[in-house]
Design a protein around this nucleic acid. Structure first.
Length: 556
RNA sequence: GGCCCAUUGGUCAAGCGGUUAAGACGUAGCCCUCUCAAGGCUGAAUCAUGGGUUCGAUUCCCGUAUGGGUCACCA
């Protein structure tokens, strides 16, 4: 009985002499202590780093790190049709940008490290063949000659008859083919694939413990799934089991879309006589769509690609902290109490993770981000903006390198004050547009279509304020004194310097100090809202301020 | 459609049989104030639904609805 299977196995894989037990020796169990987890991220090189993948990668990284384990990266390049040139490199680079570098495996597009490689699946064909051969020789796998048209027909028949679809039991045509006939067909050059001879019964239930979701019960798999495709490469399922066994992964943390195939994977582990791995299935990141929610989609949502956050200049830390709040919502509380502590000190708990797909909330990210930028000191902000603009904003980069002390003054407005930190930058790309008035050329552009003075302000009053203020303006004093001077000036012109008093008796005054400041602000910056106007004038210098006042007076 | 998973304010969510149902983002109002931002205070807003179990259900069980996942020689 076994003999004919062995013959078939030898016929299909004549050059494979190694056995599974040889692989067991070659890739020995890792020397890990109890509780230390070996995790991994295993992308297929089909494009960019998806935000959801970043999320999963973060969880994997954190779990391995906090258990003192290992986190490795393997590239699942078994789908030659969908493979995108250079995608693996992009993936690893972006992962590195977010500080989620693997300890082992692919650490650069062409570099890998570790004793469990190769880490590109396309280079592991031999391993899959060894495993497949052993399965065949035990009668647990068989060649199948069905064409894709055959399986389409099968499926539409099953659908029509309302039978559970799939290649299983009596629908598995090639399952009971005599090995002699199979050999004959192969000799004739017929194309074939390798399928699992499943021993499962769909009526049986199997249960397993998901580290995030708890107990999950599902029907046993009875599908004779494909393990080796006609191109000789393994399917995901087969590769997952072989690789995570021989790479000695202990905890597979992956997206919830895999839950349905766990029974199959468990069966595969059993048939290969491997110890199964532990599983944790993370929820999918969703996005609001009308009244419902849907998966983040790369076509519709720019934030589906994590490069978006790099490009728009969110601090890496903001992204990581935001993701952490989704992973464990008590992170926020912890963060509040441990503002200066390293993020690594927070323990991610898988069983505390919410299992429903979370909506990706850009407002929340923004809040976290502006908090983080707000807390940076000028020097740090400067360095970060410099690094970011070098790649993504040449205009800002030019400002930064042409006069770094000038831009440091700008970035430093109301920043070194720890009590009232300005939080008006959400991301680095907000910097450029908000500081145009510090640069004459851009300011010219800003006033091209006129000034934004309020309609209620009379032209003559504007001119009067500016003309008189030119005489009074003194920037060689501290801010408090400057402000007192402004109050005196305000009163002198018939405006009220006391807002409370003004609100009570509006009719007694031409306006308030708010109106006066507003005129000055707009003349200098052509914006209604800016940071502290004293600081701005101080940076520009008296000469330039007066020049701008005169520009308004001339135009009016 | 079968199977699996889920369902607490607009969002992220604490909660594990008895709570005034935390907190954060957002939102509304007020205070502060030269504008904005920040900050302070206050407010509005939630247990999908129907049955059980129980002295008592947001919490436990069953059904329904809704949402998500999955049913490839893709991962």
């Amino acid at each position: 009985m076994n003999e004919k299977y062995r013959e078939l196995a030898n016929f299909i894989f004549p050059n494979i002499n190694e056995k599974i037990k040889d692989l067991e020796k070659k890739y020995p169990e890792r020397n890990m202590q109890e509780g230390e987890k070996v995790t991994r991220i295993a992308p297929s090189p089909t494009g960019f780093l998806h935000t959801g993948a970043l999320f999963t990668a973060l969880v994997n990284k954190r779990i391995s790190k906090q258990t003192n384990g290992v986190f490795f990266l393997r590239i699942e390049d078994t789908d030659t049709k969908r493979e995108v040139e250079g995608a693996a490199g992009t993936f690893i680079n972006e992962l590195n940008s977010f500080g989620i570098s693997p300890d082992e495996g692919i650490i650069g597009e062409k570099t890998e490290t570790g004793n469990y490689g190769p880490y590109y699946q396309s280079e592991r064909k031999n391993i899959y063949k060894i495993c497949a051969k052993e399965l065949i020789s035990k009668g647990l796998a068989y060649p199948c000659f069905c064409k894709s048209t055959d399986s389409e027909e099968l499926r539409s028949f099953q659908e029509k008859e309302k039978i559970r679809p799939g290649y299983y039991g009596k629908f598995a045509k090639c399952r009971n083919m005599e090995t002699t006939e199979a050999i004959k067909k192969i000799k004739n050059g017929e194309e074939y694939i390798l399928r699992l001879r499943s021993k499962g019964n769909h009526l049986n239930k199997i249960a397993y413990e998901d580290k995030i979701r708890g107990k999950i019960e599902q029907a046993e798999s009875d599908q004779d799934i494909v393990i080796i495709k006609s191109d000789g490469l393994p399917t995901y399922h087969f590769a997952h089991v072989c690789d995570d066994h021989f790479m000695r992964t202990s905890l597979v943390i992956r997206g919830e879309e895999w839950i349905a195939s766990v029974p199959l994977h468990l069966q595969l582990f059993e048939m290969l006589e491997f110890n199964p791995v532990e599983y944790a299935h993370v929820p999918t990141l969703m996005v609001q769509d009308g009244n419902g929610k849907r998966k983040l989609s790369k076509r519709k949502d720019p934030e589906a690609a994590c490069s978006y956050f790099l490009e728009t200049g969110y601090p890496i830390l903001a992204m990581i902290e935001y993701l952490l709040t989704i992973i464990n919502s008590d992170f926020e509380l912890w963060r509040k109490d441990n503002l200066d502590k390293d993020l690594e000190l927070f323990d991610v708990k898988l069983d505390k993770m919410n299992v429903a797909g979370a909506l990706f909330d850009i407002m929340k990210l923004n809040d976290i981000s502006k908090e983080i930028i707000g807390r940076m000191n000028t020097e740090t902000l400067y360095e970060n903006a410099k690094e970011w603009s070098e790649k993504y904003d040449s205009k800002l980069q030019e400002k930064i390198i042409s006069d770094s002390s000038y831009i440091k003054k700008i970035l430093g407005i109301e920043r070194e004050n720890v009590i009232k930190v300005r939080k008006d930058f959400v991301k680095y790309s907000d910097i450029g547009p908000s500081i145009t008035y510090f640069y004459d050329e851009e300011f010219q552009e800003d006033i091209k279509d006129g000034y934004v003075f309020s309609e209620e302000m009379k032209k003559d009053d504007i001119i009067e304020i500016l003309k008189e203020y030119i005489k009074e303006l003194d920037l060689n004093v501290e801010k408090d004194e400057w402000f007192n001077n402004l109050k005196t000036f305000t009163d002198k012109l018939g405006y009220s310097s006391n807002m409370k008093e003004y609100k009570k008796n509006k009719e007694l005054y031409k306006g308030s100090i708010a109106d006066v400041s507003s005129v000055i602000r707009i003349a200098v910056t052509n914006r209604k809202n800016t940071p502290d106007i004293y600081s701005i004038m101080k940076i520009l210098g008296k000469e330039k301020v007066i020049e701008r006042f005169n520009k308004v007076i001339d135009k009016k």
